[in-house]
């Protein structure tokens, strides 16, 4: 059966690899540690960070293997297609993760809140339980527990951040053009600019959080406004950080000259991811900050 076939038309099935099992162990340590940590039990935090370090090692090792295989030219067009499609569907699943949070925001704001305020099908709720409550967004709910707060405006830092993230998308595309015409220098500068813009974004975001907590009394405890605001922006921020790390790795490889106009899956994967994070931000800007 297994007649030896050589060359480009041949699908590459990797030899056995230790990394998946390492990944599993690191994931297990992280969730186990986290479960203990949030309950203030024992060595939770340490176990979590142990798992995290292992995770970093795993990613490094796993991707080093992939890079090595790639550089030794064992992949063919079909393998590269597999990688691309895999990344595409991964992002699709992420889209649905974010959609659930947007869905929750939509539900709480336009369905549940009117009920609490005495409109629609469950209007008796208002009548019997919260007769003094007026349903206006932003709100911390009919029985707030954490005092007054101010909502986050859209036209200060958030608008600026929108511009920053959009420009980072542009610089990334600029880098991609460079890659296509094999302009090493422009590629590197494009990537650097993108990463720097990404980091500025994260910095502003961190500043905004501090501002929220310190000056606006806007915290996670501020009912549904605080909950949805921090969860949506928080998960987005986390994705920006992940995307920036991916771009950094790509930058490193670009500097080493790994990419060619026809072979740069890693670049494209990171770029797709970055654009996805970009689009999520636009939705955030509209639905969380603006409207």
């Amino acid at each position: 059966m297994a007649s030896a076939q050589h060359g480009q038309d041949h699908y590459y099935v990797p030899e056995s690899s230790p990394w998946p099992i390492v990944a599993m162990i690191s994931a297990l340590l992280m969730v186990f540690g986290l479960a203990l940590w949030i309950n203030a039990v024992g060595l939770g935090a340490w176990i979590f960070f142990g798992g995290f370090i292992l995770l970093a090692v795993m990613f490094y090792g796993w991707f080093s293997d992939v890079v090595r295989e790639n550089l030794s030219n064992v992949y063919n067009a079909q393998v590269s297609r597999s990688f691309r499609q895999g990344m595409f569907w991964f992002i699709a699943s992420e889209v649905f993760f974010f959609l659930s949070f947007f869905g929750a925001l939509f539900y709480l704001r336009t369905i549940a809140l009117p009920w609490l305020g005495g409109e629609g099908y469950l209007a008796m709720t208002h009548h019997l339980l919260y007769s003094g409550f007026e349903a206006v967004w932003p709100t911390a709910g009919p029985q707030p527990t954490a005092g007054e707060f101010e909502a986050m405006g859209a036209w200060g830092i958030p608008a600026l951040n929108t511009a920053i993230l959009l420009s980072s998308g542009a610089t990334l595309t600029w880098a991609h053009w460079a890659l296509k015409k094999n302009d090493q220098k422009q590629l590197i500068w494009g990537l650097i600019a993108t990463v720097v813009l990404g980091l500025i974004f994260v910095g502003f975001q961190a500043y905004e959080y501090i501002h929220a907590y310190r000056d606006l009394n806007l915290t996670l405890e501020q009912g549904i406004y605080g909950s949805t605001f921090f969860m949506l922006t928080g998960f987005h921020g986390f994705h920006v950080i992940v995307g920036a790390i991916m771009l950094l790795a790509v930058l490193g490889r670009a500097i080493k000259g790994h990419f060619s106009p026809h072979n740069h899956f890693a670049f494209e994967a990171a770029a797709w991811y970055w654009h996805f994070v970009d689009v999520v931000w636009l939705a955030l800007f509209v639905f969380v900050y603006w409207l």
Partner: peptide, 27 residues
Amino acid sequence: PVLAAGVTMLLFDRHFGTSFFIAAGGG
């Protein structure tokens, strides 16, 4: 991913003071 998001909100309601599923906070 929707289930993952749902239980994540649950986790936050349990430990970090959010009110996705608590009426008093508008959830």
